[in-house]
């Protein structure tokens, strides 16, 4: 090839010297070729026998782990759901219990209040009745006292005014009429 091309291109003398080193660059050095073959064979067997199986194993392990985790997550979710149901039920029960308790308490309170109001009313009634009877008794007593006093006073007065002209019976009648008038006025 070189001999074929060189006369055509008519290269200068120095260029011909560089030609031989130029093609050297394209031809593989035997020691490098041997080193390359050895190195590449070792890499290839390492990859073939170890790396690819290891990669497969890693991927398989990861897949298994992820599947396992997904299953576990599913069961956990179901557990959580049932737990939530339980809690909801308990909550509802507690609510109804609380309602009952409040209802009972209200009824008890109502009863208590009715009771107390009734009692208070009865007390008040009895106090009123007693007061009224007391007042009546007091009034009677006062009336009697006034009647006596007025009788004595009027008798004394009359005796002083009409000194002896009025007999005992007429005087008594007069006093009674007066008392009646007083009583009527009072009533």
């Amino acid at each position: 090839m070189i001999q074929f091309l060189a006369p055509i291109l008519v290269l200068a003398e120095e260029a011909v010297v560089e030609e031989s080193s130029g093609i050297d660059l394209l031809l593989p050095e035997s020691s490098e070729l041997i080193a390359g073959i050895i190195a590449f064979s070792i890499i290839f067997f390492f990859v073939w026998k170890w790396v690819i199986p290891a990669a497969d194993k890693t991927l398989a392990a990861r897949q298994e782990a992820i599947t396992g985790q997904l299953t576990q997550a599913e069961t956990t979710k179901q557990e959580a759901a049932s737990l939530l149901d339980d809690y909801k039920k308990q909550l509802a029960q507690a609510k109804s219990e609380a309602n009952t308790i409040v209802e009972n308490a209200r009824e008890a309170g109502d009863a208590l209040r009715t009771d107390m109001v009734g009692k208070a009313e009865a007390d008040a009634e009895s106090i009123r009745v007693k007061a009224r009877s007391d007042a009546a008794a007091e009034r009677d007593r006062a009336a009697t006292q006034i009647k006596d006093e007025v009788a004595a006073l009027s008798l004394e007065l009359a005796q002083k005014v009409v000194a002896g002209t009025v007999d005992e019976s007429a005087q008594q009648a007069l006093v009674d009429r007066y008392i009646d008038d007083v009583g009527n006025l009072e009533a």
């Binding site: 050095e29 020691s31 490098e32 080193a35 390359g36 190195a39 070792i42 890499i43 390492f46 170890w50």
Partner: peptide, 19 residues
């Protein structure tokens, strides 16, 4: 063992170590 040959084996060891 020229420099290129040594580098070839160095490359091999690096590949093996990385993997």
């Amino acid at each position: 063992f020229t420099r290129t040959v040594v580098l070839t084996f160095l490359a091999m060891f690096i590949v093996l170590a990385l993997l």
